[in-house]
Simulated assay, not measured.
Amino acid sequence: MASPATEFVQVNGGRLACSVRGTGPVVLYAHGLFCSRAVDRQRGLVDFSPVAEAGCRLVAYDARGHGESGCGRHSGAFGWPALADDLLALADHFSPGEPVSAIGLSMGTGTALHAALKRPERFRKLVLTAPPTAWDTRAAQVQVYRKLAAVAASGKVALLEKALAMAPVPPIFANIPRPSPLAAVALQTLPLVLAGAAASDLPAPAALRGIRQPTLVLGWDTDPAHPVSTSATLAGLLPGAELRVARDIAEIATWGEQAAAYLGGG
């Protein structure tokens, strides 16, 4: 299937690159850290295009500082609450009169949750995939981001790649090539993006109990950066949420169809 044309949308002082596929109620897709529309296509881990074939208008976009999208000049521009403001601006642009649904992956899940709490009336349904480590389990990941930010700030690409190569690979991804952050984020922007991730967390559990939208939580196994414990906690906190956990790559590959069936028509 050919890739849709890129559309640039001005939001919150930046320019976000978007691709639109299908017709119907709008579904916004927010990718993970170090990813982009191009990286997602190249990696081929999850394909959400079936959502556009299920009576929805799927809007995939490159997050601030990723892919073809512009960026801010301080780490706060890359924190999940700020990224949530970008998602909300896209919701207002593509669907000013009707609520949207949102699909988030890792960082995108954090983005979607912060957005849903800021303006709950803008959302119909949520699909939260690969929820990242959060709350009490997040400290170790924060330290990883801070160390990588310091290496990236040195400007030494070889040193950065060596540091990334030393990171353990989750068993579920043992046979999947790991993309370099530089495939989606420019070296000069990477320290800010990492600092933003280090300063971010999912919303507080007490706040999450107030999210009333129907929600599908899709987690994957054996990854400390995206532990099943976060997915299970989210599903327990969000009223009426449904949890499914993928145990291998083949199951992750079905997430597009699962999201399409869940959102079907919005």
Rank of each mutant, 00 (worst) to 15 (best):
P120Q: 06
P120I: 06
R122H: 10
F123P: 10
R124M: 11
V127E: 07
V127H: 11
A130E: 05
A130N: 12
P131R: 14
P131T: 10
P131C: 13
P132E: 05
A134F: 03
A134K: 05
A134W: 09
W135H: 15
W135E: 02
T137G: 07
R138A: 15
R138L: 14
V144K: 12
Y145N: 10
L148Q: 13
A150Y: 04
A150S: 15
A150K: 15
V151F: 02
A152M: 02
A153P: 00
A153M: 03
S154T: 15
S154P: 09
G155M: 01
A158L: 13
A158R: 15
L159S: 14
L159I: 04
L159F: 07
L159V: 06
L160M: 02
E161L: 12
K162E: 15
L164K: 08
A165T: 11
M166C: 10
M166S: 14
A167R: 15
V169R: 14
P170S: 02
P170D: 06
P170F: 07
P170A: 05
I172A: 05
I172Y: 00
F173W: 06
F173D: 00
A174K: 09
A174V: 03
N175S: 09
I176G: 03
P177L: 02
R178Q: 12
P179L: 06
P179M: 06
S180M: 03
S180N: 00
A183S: 13
A183G: 09
V185Q: 01
V185N: 02
A186P: 03
L187C: 08
L187P: 05
Q188H: 03
Q188D: 13
Q188E: 14
L190H: 04
V193C: 08
A195C: 04
A197S: 09
A198Q: 05
D201G: 00
L202Q: 09
P203L: 01
A204W: 09
P205K: 00
A206N: 07
L208T: 01
R209V: 13
R209T: 15
I211T: 08
R212H: 13
R212Q: 15
R212F: 10
T215Q: 13
G219S: 15
D221C: 12
D223Y: 10
A225E: 15
V228E: 15
T230A: 13
S231T: 04
A232Y: 06
T233Y: 08
L234Y: 05
L234N: 09
A235P: 12
A235D: 08
L238T: 04
L238E: 01
L238F: 03
L238A: 04
P239I: 02
G240Q: 04
A241D: 02
E242L: 13
R244G: 00
A246F: 00
R247Q: 14
D248A: 03
D248N: 14
I249L: 11
